[in-house]
Design a protein around this nucleic acid. Structure first.
Lengths: 117, 117
DNA sequence: TGTTTTGATAACTATACAGCGATATATCTA
DNA sequence: TAGATATATCGCTGTATAGTTATCAAAACA
């Protein structure tokens, strides 16, 4: 029999999870994802929509494609990117809700503190 | 009437979300979270359980506490940390499942490619 | 009170990476 | 084929941060 609660979770698994989170830990990439919610776009359209440079975008798009978040379809000279895994939005939503809850709770606590004096 | 699909999402919101993901994008922190699944622990217990240095742990614990993921209770000379928001595990699970699905799909595609020759 | 123990912080180094300009690659068209 | 257009990649710089050692602060206890 082993210890009570936790399974040891191999480091490679943790590394994979950490890397996925790292991909989502950049405002620029979240903004790209937000743009792509309305459908596939090519790089030029994304430069206009986000204001980021073409080189910068290209790098971010590659990173997210390698992470399995986006998929790439070359069409003529241009490359269209689209969301490959809609679950990212669920993740963002969960995080966003959590942040909202926390802020509301902090507001309540602060208000109680003000009432104390 | 505005554009079709996407609401613009204020940059501060994206920044908050990105920062939360960044907290989870480190193997050491995920390992700490995994340890704390079995219940609250103090810093010394965590140094033994994870092998990380005390100073390093203290820094990571502070980061996760500020992010609302952990909570801290000083008790005597020591400080006990515990999971404040169990939803992190749901997030990790979602990511982990996604990675698994993707690997299985790649394996299938590779097998099909091998069959082709 | 001084000592011990536990945790937090400061200063530093090394590394990772976002963003930029310049250049390379590939597809289309004249 | 030459030239134009859309992406990708390279080399670089600045910044952020993980990890380390040393030190500090506070509680427990002699």
């Amino acid at each position: 029999m082993s210890e009570p609660g936790f399974s040891p979770l191999p480091p490679e698994v943790l590394a994979s999870i950490a890397e996925y989170f790292k991909v989502l830990s950049e405002v620029s990439r979240l903004q790209i994802l937000n743009c792509l919610r309305s459908g596939p776009m090519n790089v030029m359209e994304l430069t206009e929509a986000t204001g980021y440079s073409q080189a910068n975008l290209s790098k971010h798009l590659k990173i997210m494609t390698q992470a399995g978040i986006l998929s790439r379809q070359p069409r003529g000279v241009s490359a269209y990117y689209e969301i490959a895994d809609p679950k990212v939005f669920q993740l963002c939503h969960t995080v966003c809700d959590g942040i909202g809850d926390r802020l509301r709770q902090q507001a309540r606590q602060f208000q109680a503190f003000q009432g104390d004096r």
